[in-house]
Simulated scan of single mutants.
Amino acid sequence: METPRSGRTRTTSISLAAETLEAIRERAGKGGVSAFIEEAVRHELAMLALGEIVADHQARHGELTPAEIAAAEAELFGAPRDSSAAA
């Protein structure tokens, strides 16, 4: 998992539960712990920004309808699978 880096990096100290750090180390691969955490934080920041966009939209236009949610999911993840076809 390689994350493009822009600009300078800075060092900081964080505390993690021992089990969390061990799980990261087991899964981090050659990118290492820092790259793994960088990617996770970037993802979380993107999800928070998306939540802000949705909240702003809903404040201006009302709650999203099930059809709007389904359309967004289809655009993000592709057409939903028909569960009745997988038998």
Score class of each variant (00 low, 15 high):
9 T>C: 12
31 G>M: 02
66 P>R: 02
23 A>L: 11
78 G>M: 02
56 D>P: 02
9 T>D: 14
60 R>V: 06
45 L>W: 08
48 L>S: 09
59 A>C: 02
42 R>N: 15
69 I>Q: 05
81 R>T: 14
33 V>C: 01
77 F>G: 08
81 R>H: 13
74 A>Q: 07
69 I>R: 10
54 V>E: 06
81 R>M: 03
58 Q>C: 11
25 R>A: 09
72 A>M: 08
57 H>L: 05
46 A>P: 15
67 A>I: 00
25 R>K: 11
62 G>Q: 00
7 G>N: 03
56 D>Q: 13
56 D>I: 02
8 R>L: 13
4 P>D: 13
75 E>A: 12
28 A>F: 01
70 A>S: 12
26 E>R: 15
87 A>W: 01
38 E>Q: 15
27 R>H: 10
67 A>P: 02
79 A>Y: 12
27 R>W: 08
60 R>I: 01
28 A>Q: 11
46 A>C: 11
7 G>V: 01
68 E>I: 00
12 T>G: 05
74 A>S: 13
16 L>V: 10
79 A>E: 15
70 A>D: 12
77 F>A: 02
47 M>T: 14
43 H>P: 06
48 L>C: 03
47 M>F: 12
17 A>H: 10
45 L>D: 10
72 A>H: 03
35 A>L: 05
7 G>F: 02
4 P>W: 04
50 L>M: 15
66 P>V: 02
25 R>I: 11
86 A>Y: 11
54 V>Y: 08
86 A>N: 13
79 A>G: 06
13 S>R: 14
80 P>W: 01
13 S>A: 07
14 I>S: 02
43 H>W: 14
65 T>V: 00
